[in-house]
Design a binder for these strands. Structure first.
Length: 569
RNA sequence: GCGCCUGUAGCUCAGGGGAUAGAGCAGCGGACUUCUAAUCCGUUAGUCGCAGGUUCGAAUCCUGCCAGGCGUACCA
């Protein structure tokens, strides 16, 4: 809690000759709560004072002896640290009060000041099925979208659909050769995908297919009527299919600006590049040499005149800056495209766009099979829809078995099943590859979303049984926290705002996800040691207010991960 | 070849200069006439890939090596 830190900062600052903000930066949470709740390390002072850290800590301890603050009650030196112990009554009361008053806003800040942040995420390739691989960008991006909103930014979600490029040439060739209207109507994405796979099989035997595809893409770029009508059709049918998945996941985008959206701007981009004199013709193609920066060259236009995706990405970046004047521009795109973004940002820098320093590639590892990577072309892929359906189905079975009388079984099964899939993706560090494992996806015990949701449902159940008149504010009653489990829980709840900030600024929803596991764990410990309904009225009231703030923290936190917290499960 | 990322307990992973390296899963042993046992408590388990270096202090920073992943001019 920030106020506690400020208070300690002001207590120590005059004693050590540092700015109190500097002192606050140095404060850390001790590894063992019996040491204290917030520690000031004396290593930095050792050099200045030419004394060993423990001596300094002792000295500070004697100066602070007998003192206390509003939120802390004593300061005790231990080794090289001086440890502050909170006053559980005031600290607990004020924290619970804050959550009580802020409700769904607890955890939010206004660091962003309403500035725009564009977030390019999900961005599936038209005519390819929505595989589990795509869930990562979708889920991580959506969480960042919500996190930046919580920091007071104006998040702008952009679905940069892969709706342009050579793959459309391939699809057109495949559909013209082998396509059947009726099957396209039936299940467009699945059928287009089959055609795509078939194309790659055949092209291995007959490389001339690739040339044919390139030429069809060229025709598309030139506005050829036949090519364009195929393209429109494929695009529209795919979008309709995606809509159902986004609907299920509760995701909306401000803009569906796919790659094709930038077609009219490509000439301008190429002109800007030419004017800057950083491009050159090579073997008929338009290139930018990045050798001086240790990067491979960039190709803006192929020898057949067709553009490449980096050309469209350049246009997109410029468009986004000109349209949104973003404070930050995030690209939630797989780590395999790291080089692409290094090149993209370098070119923007060479073009003199200073705002490129606010562009960030947020990379993530891939989802792989034990045997190797997934491959759309080879047809080795697991559909996201299937994963989501099976997870919900599994949740439904467990509910049937554990809580057969539950009223809204379907709602709970959806929350738990979808939450499990999302959480599995968000709880580990983005950059690591994930090995796809059905058993793990369908396991709802341990460090999972269900664990957190279960804590939430338990709280709701207690509150329901207590009756609403117990949920009234009372200063005296709320000061009665004393059991270790209560105090640990309060201290954990106090961390939400800083976890939200850390999560957003490091672009790692996993920080928040792991924190929520901690909250649920501390609640469960409390639950098993501190009866609520069976306690005497004041304690009962106090604990109800405590668990009510816990409920709020969990709901707010899961919400920022895009996961819902059912009241019963 | 070169570049980027990863390497921590049997497995999956936290921790990313500071106090004794932590969780979950799996295993073993306990706790439901008591607020939902999708829970809790206890227990077993580690040359933090290897070797040097910087520092009062390194799992954490630097260098080299090893292993795996990804990328590396007409795909995205």
């Amino acid at each position: 809690m920030q106020k506690l830190k400020e208070e300690i900062g002001q207590a120590i600052a005059p004693l050590v000759g540092l700015e109190s903000t500097k002192v606050i930066d140095l404060l850390e949470i001790p590894p063992d709560p019996t040491y204290g709740d917030l520690a000031f390390p004396c290593y930095n002072l050792a050099k200045i004072r030419k004394q060993p850290p423990p001596v300094i800590a002792k000295d500070l301890g004697s100066k602070l002896a007998g003192q206390e603050g509003y939120y802390w009650e004593k300061a005790v030196p231990k080794g090289p640290y001086i440890n502050f112990h909170i006053n559980p009554r005031t600290y607990g009361r004020e924290l619970i009060r804050q959550v009580w008053e802020e409700e769904q806003d607890y955890g939010k800040t206004n660091l962003g000041n309403g500035d725009n942040v564009t977030i390019d995420y999900s961005s599936p390739n038209i005519a390819k099925p929505f595989g589990v691989g795509h869930i990562r960008s979708t889920v991580i991006g959506h969480s960042l979208y919500l996190l930046y909103k919580a920091l007071g930014y104006n998040s702008i979600g952009i679905n940069h659909l892969g709706d342009w490029g050579t793959q459309f040439g391939k699809l057109i060739v495949a559909f013209k050769r082998w396509g059947e209207e009726s099957r396209l109507e039936e299940d467009p994405v699945d059928y287009l995908y089959q055609l795509y796979v078939q194309f790659h099989h055949q092209a291995e035997e007959d490389p001339s297919l690739d040339d044919e595809a390139r030429s069809w893409f060229q025709r598309l770029e030139n506005g050829d009527e036949t090519a364009v009508s195929y393209w429109k059709r494929f695009r529209q049918l795919s979008l309709e299919t995606y809509a159902s998945i986004y609907g299920l996941l509760g995701i909306q985008f401000e803009y569906y600006h796919g790659e094709s959206h930038y077609n009219q701007m490509l000439d301008r981009v190429i002109n800007i590049v030419k004017e800057k004199g950083i491009a050159n013709e090579s073997e008929g193609a338009l290139m930018i040499d990045l050798e001086p920066y240790g990067l491979p060259p960039v190709m803006l236009r192929k020898k057949d005149g067709a553009t490449l995706y980096i050309t469209r990405d350049l246009a997109a970046a410029i468009y986004r800056y000109e349209t949104f004047n973003f404070a930050r521009s995030l690209y939630v795109v797989g780590a395999e495209q790291t080089l692409h973004f290094q090149q993209l940002f370098k070119v923007l820098e060479l073009l003199g766009f200073e705002w490129v320093s606010n562009c960030v590639h947020v990379p993530f590892g891939m989802i792989r099979f034990k045997e190797g990577r997934m491959s759309t072309r080879a047809g080795k892929i697991i559909l996201l829809e299937e994963v989501l359906q099976r997870a919900v189905e599994m949740a439904r079975e467990i509910i049937e078995q554990k809580n057969p009388d539950l009223e809204d079984k379907e709602g709970a099964a959806k929350a738990v099943g979808l939450g499990a899939v999302r959480f599995g993706d968000l709880s580990n560090d983005r950059v690591k590859n994930i090995e796809f494992d059905w058993e793990k996806v369908l396991d709802f015990s341990g460090e999972t979303a269900a664990y957190i949701q279960y804590a939430h449902a338990r709280i709701c159940s207690i509150i329901r049984k207590a009756g609403s008149d117990f949920l009234t504010w009372d200063d005296d009653v709320v000061s009665r926290l004393e059991k270790e489990e209560e105090i640990t829980l309060v201290k954990t709840l106090a961390l939400l705002p800083e976890k939200v900030i850390d999560s957003a600024e490091s672009y790692r929803p996993s920080v928040l996800a792991r924190y929520l596991i901690d909250v649920a764990r501390e609640f469960n410990r409390f639950y098993h040691n501190c009866p609520v309904l069976g306690s005497e009225p004041e304690i009962k009231h106090c604990r109800l207010l405590l668990i009510n703030s816990t409920r709020q923290v969990i709901a707010n936190g899961l919400g920022l991960l895009g996961i819902t917290a059912p009241e019963e499960m």
